[in-house]
Every structure is written in structure tokens, then in C-alpha cells.
Design a protein around this nucleic acid. Structure first.
Lengths: 190, 190
DNA sequence: TTAAAAAAGTGATATACATCACATTTTTTT
DNA sequence: AAAAAAATGTGATGTATATCACTTTTTTAA
């Protein structure tokens, strides 16, 4: 188990440096958890107590529309952060679902803990700042892809960028991520 | 002029608190500039020296596709931050344009300055962290709107959220932001 | 290891939206 | 104030993609 915490520390130290003393302050704020395939980390209407850092497995965050269709915001795998950030930040009930596509292991961090850590350990404020920045940039790229590319072009780009993900998950989920129907996606390529 | 800097300080102090000493360290890193309608803050292929905080006016950031069509990432007005964040963060040539829809006034902050400020003044790391977080959340909402809503629903939502913006800018720019042709947008409502 | 469930493929048809072409109105510039 | 440029509106037509209905294949669970 301790090794899982080491992974987390390494994740921080890719961007910042931490003393042992700082790490000893930080680590207890993270709670280690496991869930099996199809179990939920977050459900709409429920409070969002945590954001999650994925140790292994595969998780999706998604909205469900009036017709019952899923629209996937994010696939989160090893080394990714995920939550319902809107609800988490504002401490209101969730508006999206987050659940496991595969058995998954992760750390939980509450908003209070995150803010405490950022106040006490300036390097961690920088860590989250820089991470958040990269996240922001990634979402801007995705918006551009939705505005400028056809569904098939987006599919090709995803195949190129994350070929293993495309093989790892049902195509209907890939379709729900790209913003295209599963039938149409099934007709792409050759 | 000094009053413009006061606006900037107030902008920070909506989220954090700063001592006069801290502010005196921060302020000189910001350069005050003005540009007229149609002038560029960033052009593709050029280095992205700064991110910008808008004092007044109206600015757009956008990509141009092979066919020459504009796709708008952001409308930035009073109190907003804007840049080509992908290029800024990686210090590579710009891949998008940023220009003035109206005469505009803003502050420029270089990457080096931002990092210096965040290292020296922990509260500022928290400021940028929190701002970036809100930005991230906003983009997630927009992605959901692109995945779940029709063009007309997105238009209605924008009319509801930013009615003044819709009146302030040419409809073809609204169309380029929503991801719909100007002709189709012109047929909405009644 | 067999039944049940989920995923994937495919034809037929429907539709939201794009594109093209051109007229009209509004705004900008001289 | 006149001329030029930009924005807007609208008909006609084309197309990418959605939806529906059903079959086949693969995966999961009893």
C-alpha cells in the first residue's frame, strides 16, 4: 500500500519538489480507495466530497440528457485527475456521473484538504495551478476539435492519439465522447 | 493610469489578499497597453510573449481552418484573461489569432513574470490556481453544451447568459463561437 | 458452459445544418 | 454626404449525421 502513496508523491515531484516533512503533511489528506467495474464515484444529485487521482483502472465522467443518452466529458486513467469539478468547486450536488469502466484504484482528496494543502505548502499551490493550466489547454483543444473537425476527423485524431483507449473501451463510449452516434461511428474507416 | 493598476489589484483581491509590499513587487511585471479595433494581440506563427488581462474593450481568440473560416474559442471582455495558452505555456509559435473586436486596453504578463510572481508570492499561485480552475470548469460546460445541445439551444443559452454580448458583436462571430453557420443562425428565433 | 446481456454492424429513412447565390440593410470610411 | 465595405436575410439545394429497426457477434455472468 505504501507504494501507492509513493506513486502519488512521484506524481507531484514530476512538477515540484517536496521535502519529507512537507510530504508527511500532505499524504494523510489522501484517502486510498478501490471500486469495481460499474460502481460509481459520483452520482447526480449527490454531494461531491472529493476529487480523485487515478492509480490504475479506467473511469469515465459523463452527463445524461433528457433522452437518456450519455455524453462523455472525460476518460480518466492512470495518473489522471477526475471529479465533477463544477459541483466540487461550488460544493453543490453533482450534475454528472463518474463511474468505473474497469476495476479501479484511486486516491480521494476533499476540497477542504486541497485548500489546506495549498495554503500550507506553496509548492502544492503551484502544482495544482500548473496541472489546472494543462487541463484548461486540453479542453480548449477539444473545443477547437468540436468546432473545426468532422466526426470522422475527430475519430481519426483520437485513434492516432490514444489508440489503446479506443481498443480498450466499447465503441459506443468512444462515440459518446466524440459527439457522434454509435451507428455513424461504426460506419467510419474500412 | 495608476487607477488602471488599482483595478488589477482589486481583481486579485477578489480572491486573495495582498500586502502593499507584495503588490509593489507584482505590479511592475504588468505592462499596460492599448490597441484599436482590428489590431492583433497574437498572430499564428508569431511568438506568444504574454497573457493578457482585459481592462476594457472586447477581444476574440480564434482559429482559422484550411477553408479560411474562423472558429472562436473565446470572447474576452473587461476582467477576463486571454492568450494562446497552448503556445504561451509551451513557448512555441501561436496557432491561433487574438485580436480586438473593439478598441481595447489591457495588461500584459510574460510567462517568466508569471512564474516569478507565483514562486515569490504564494497567494498569487493560489490566485492563478483558482482562476485556472474556474476556466477549466467553464470549458467543461461548453464542451457539454457542444455535445448535448442543438445549435439553436446553444444560441438560446447564450442569449440568456450574455444578451449584451450578442447585441454587441456581429452575428457571424456569434455563429463562429457556437459552431453553426451564420446563415443558419440567422434563421433561428423569429 | 450455457443463457443472458451488451456491443457491433448495417440498411432504410429522416433531419439539422451547411453551402451557394443573391438581395437588402447597416455600418464604416473618405 | 456619398461611396465602399460589412453585416444580415432568405430561397434553393446538398450533405453529414441521427434515428429506427433488425441481425450478428462478442462479452459477461449464472
Amino acid at each position: 500500500m505504501q507504494d501507492k502513496y509513493q506513486l502519488l508523491r512521484q506524481h507531484f515531484e514530476e512538477i515540484i519538489t517536496l521535502t519529507d516533512e512537507e510530504w508527511n503533511f500532505i499524504a494523510p489528506h489522501f484517502e486510498h480507495k478501490k471500486l469495481k467495474k460499474h460502481q460509481f464515484l459520483i452520482q447526480t444529485g449527490q454531494p461531491v466530497d472529493c476529487e480523485f487521482w487515478i492509480i490504475n483502472g479506467l473511469i469515465k465522467s459523463y452527463a445524461v440528457d433528457e433522452k437518456g443518452s450519455e455524453h462523455i466529458l472525460q476518460f480518466a486513467m492512470e495518473d489522471y485527475w477526475v471529479s465533477d469539478y463544477y459541483a466540487f468547486q461550488h460544493q453543490i450536488p453533482a450534475t454528472i456521473f463518474v463511474d468505473c469502466i474497469e476495476d479501479s484504484e484511486f486516491f480521494c482528496l476533499s476540497l477542504e484538504s486541497r485548500e489546506t494543502i495549498c495554503q500550507k505548502i506553496p509548492a502544492m499551490a503551484n502544482f495544482f495551478r500548473i496541472k489546472s493550466n494543462y487541463g484548461f489547454i486540453g479542453l480548449q483543444q477539444r473545443i477547437l476539435s468540436l468546432l473545426t473537425q468532422t466526426a470522422e476527423e475527430r475519430y481519426d485524431a483520437l485513434l492516432f492519439k490514444l489508440p489503446k483507449l479506443v481498443q480498450r473501451v466499447p465503441k459506443k463510449l468512444i462515440a459518446a465522447y466524440l459527439g457522434v452516434s454509435r451507428e455513424t461511428l461504426s460506419r467510419f474507416k474500412g
